[in-house]
Design a binder for these strands. Structure first.
Lengths: 338, 338
DNA sequence: CCACTGAAGTTTTACGTATAACTTGTTCCT
DNA sequence: AGGAACAAGTTATACGTAAAACTTCAGTGG
């Protein structure tokens, strides 16, 4: 009889069922066919149920040398985007008997510290979003299989990468605005060093360079509505050759641009077109609803987990970028005359 | 020499430093004073560094019988609220050498399934938000120390509870609206069975019952902007004795109420006052900015973790409810004449 | 000079599991 | 009849760590 308060072990179950510990392990591990009789197996299962036996995961992990647990490192969970990524990753993981532990990096989207100080769980692999070389090194020092989300395929030496086709999204936005006659652009950029934001800047600038008569200014802001508001207000204040379109690095920045516009007496979209990127719930909460690029967060998470499974099984993890779609709503309109 | 690809163990470090495995454990566990010489300790640390040694957590957890890891069960991470809770909990945890694993329950705020199927990590305790009896039973079956967030102190048998003073928040909102002359109220309620929402309904109804000449209708909606929009639109459609104030169970529902109002040609706040609860970033992104009740998510998480630590150490976890504040912004105004 | 103390270690063991290797008894084929 | 083949188990071991219990040796006080 196990002491009160102590959790029952497989040995307790064995004793209760009148068999050896090995038999218990075989039965509960579903490896008993041809090794244990049907009747005995049932007896073991009954004993386990009666005692409320739950295997000690630390012991199992030690024995097997793996945990079937992976870490998902994400920037701070200030939007629902990474909730979607987690959902997708967790769905695929559970189909393969894996668990996903979520680690929101304290520093936001930028460089993240070594997550292993916090996550006491032993891990089989890591899916990391938008991290800097520093943390990457710490992880690779641990020899852990690694998949990078939304990161430079060149920069992440050896690690598999899974990316959304952000560049194409920016192209679609830019072409949409050019088609509406816009020529003077403001890029409201995230004030965070990350490849994913570099792509936006590069692609927008590149596309505009191909079209004569266009101009591009850039304003940087921390990724928050308040921060974006201040930055956008300053950038839009000059009346003479004010931009007619604001391309924002994400929907939160776009919401800040709305507020700046309102403060300056500019109407969206009559005086100013605004675009976002993400398609958060926020995008349809604000008025007018935001023209933005829809990112499929769940698919992103699924693909990330699938890539990690491939790495773990020694398969090739590479697949193409995930397509994104422009969603045209009420925040973009034909360029105002004059 | 450890085989290529295998992680070095404490035994490898011992061999490299020319000492026993026990000495390595003592030195790295900082228990060496009076047991190992300064010089040897330094030699061990150097060897560990050289080999890139990281202790096997599964083995440590098995040996110690604890993991210094706790699980934080939250509803789906669709708003930044629970990100704040996590941040607060993780901060306190790391100060005490604990890690926090985040488990977003797949079913939203309502009844959650047993999280242990997914989280392969062995756990020392659980902080669970707004869960139903079903999951609670599963957890208590595991004999795990448990702290409930935002749950009925009566219903959660034996488990410690940490609560925000939501009731007081609802009182403040109601008194604010009554003071502005409102008498016809619509309660836009979350369509989810949870104690935290029952409190809102009870408190609002109770307060209005004390004031003669008031009326209260209730509309239920899933917690999303879209869902709230549809529900609020239906509830506000009847012209004659339409409510003049909409009290929403959270900010997302309030954003939906804005959209319904706009669709019906009602101006906020001139024709309709709207209030929320949470004070999300969304609250200041919409126009007009939302009058709402600010909840201190980080403090909530801190208090939750502190309570769990108290339980783990056999101390009394109980503290008072966390105060909340009404934040008056532009979405509430004096009741329209007539 | 000898018992004693303290420093500086080492040896050993236990944590709970999964599984390889072994044992025993029965059935079946030739 | 004699073993081969198989069912139905058991015994023993390893995973990597932490720490209790033991050893060895040098110095010290009476």
């Amino acid at each position: 009889m196990p002491g009160a308060g102590t959790r029952p072990t497989s040995r307790d179950v064995a004793q209760a069922a009148g068999v050896s510990q090995a038999a218990v392990s075989l039965v509960l591990g579903d490896k008993w066919r041809g090794r244990v009789s049907q009747a005995t197996a049932e007896r073991v299962r009954e004993a386990a149920r009666a005692l409320g036996y739950r295997p000690n995961l630390a012991a199992r992990n030690l024995r097997l040398g793996r945990t079937r647990t992976v870490l998902l490192v994400v920037p701070a969970l200030t939007t629902e985007f990474f909730a979607g990524v987690y959902t997708g990753a967790a769905r695929v993981a559970s189909q393969h008997g894996f668990g996903v532990v979520l680690y929101p990096s304290p520093e936001g989207i930028g460089p993240a510290r070594n997550p292993f100080a916090s996550a006491q769980a032993a891990l089989d692999g890591v899916i990391a979003s938008s991290m800097a070389a520093e943390a990457l090194t710490a992880i690779r020092g641990d020899q852990l299989p690694l998949v990078m989300l939304d990161s430079d395929p060149e920069g992440s030496v050896g690690a598999a990468t899974v990316n959304l086709d952000i560049a194409d999204g920016v192209r679609q936005v830019t072409d949409h605005l050019l088609g509406l006659g816009h020529r003077r652009f403001l890029h409201l950029a995230a004030d965070v060093p990350s490849w994913t934001f570099e792509v936006r800047a590069r692609e927008l600038a590149g596309r505009l360079r191909e079209v004569p008569g266009t101009s591009l200014r850039t304003a940087r802001a921390p990724i928050s509505i308040r921060g974006a508001e201040a930055s956008a207000q300053a950038a839009l204040a000059g009346a003479p050759d004010r931009p007619t379109a604001v391309v924002c690095d994400d929907d939160q920045l776009a919401a800040g641009a709305y507020k700046a516009a309102r403060r300056l007496g500019l109407r969206v979209p009559e005086d100013l077109s605004v675009t976002g990127l993400d398609d958060l719930a926020l995008a349809t909460a604000i008025d007018p609803e935001l023209t933005t690029v829809r990112l499929d967060a769940e698919l992103f998470g699924e693909r990330g987990m699938r890539a990690l499974l491939a790495v773990l099984e020694g398969r090739d993890p590479s697949e193409g970028d995930i397509p994104v779609d422009l969603v045209v709503r009420g925040s973009t309109a034909r360029v105002p005359a004059g």
